[in-house]
Amino acid sequence: MPTVAETAPTCIVRGLSFDALAQALARGRTSIFTLNLMHLRLLAQNPEFRESYREASIVTLDSNWLNTCFLRRRMTVAAGSDFVHFLGSRGALRDKSVLVVGNVTPADAARVMASRRLDVVRPPFGFIRDPAAVEDVIARCRALEPEVIFIAVGAPQSEMLALRMRRAGLAEASILCCGAAFEFELGVQRRSPVFLRRTGLEWVWRLATNPRRLAGRYASDAGFVLARLGQFAGLARSGRLRVGGLHLQFRQEAGLEEASVG
Rank of each mutant, 00 (worst) to 15 (best):
S89W: 00
G28K: 01
R41F: 01
L35Y: 06
L256A: 14
I128M: 11
L176Q: 04
W65Y: 13
G234H: 11
A162Y: 00
L170Y: 09
R117P: 08
F224V: 12
F195K: 00
F70M: 06
I151Y: 00
Y53N: 03
L42G: 02
R41N: 06
F86T: 04
V13R: 13
T76N: 09
P211Q: 07
L201V: 01
F18C: 09
L207M: 06
F224I: 09
L21V: 09
A92Y: 08
S97C: 15
R237I: 06
S63A: 08
G230D: 15
A79M: 14
P9G: 07
L40I: 03
R117T: 14
G230P: 13
S81F: 13
R140S: 02
I58E: 04
A56G: 02
I151S: 03
V104I: 15
R94M: 15
G244T: 00
V204K: 14
I128V: 12
A236L: 07
A20G: 13
G239M: 11
G187H: 14
L40P: 00
L170Q: 13
F49K: 01
R213M: 15
L241N: 11
R217S: 07
P146S: 06
R251L: 14
V137I: 08
A227M: 13
A56K: 02
V98H: 05
R240G: 08
G91I: 13
S17E: 02
G262C: 09
S31V: 13
T60R: 05
G88V: 08
E159A: 06
S63E: 05
P124T: 06
A233T: 15
R251Q: 15
A78Q: 03
G169Q: 11
A143S: 10
G80H: 03
P47G: 08
D221K: 07
K96A: 12
P146A: 09
S238P: 09
V84I: 13
R213I: 12
F184Y: 14
C141G: 14
R116H: 01
E145F: 07
A139Y: 13
L25S: 03
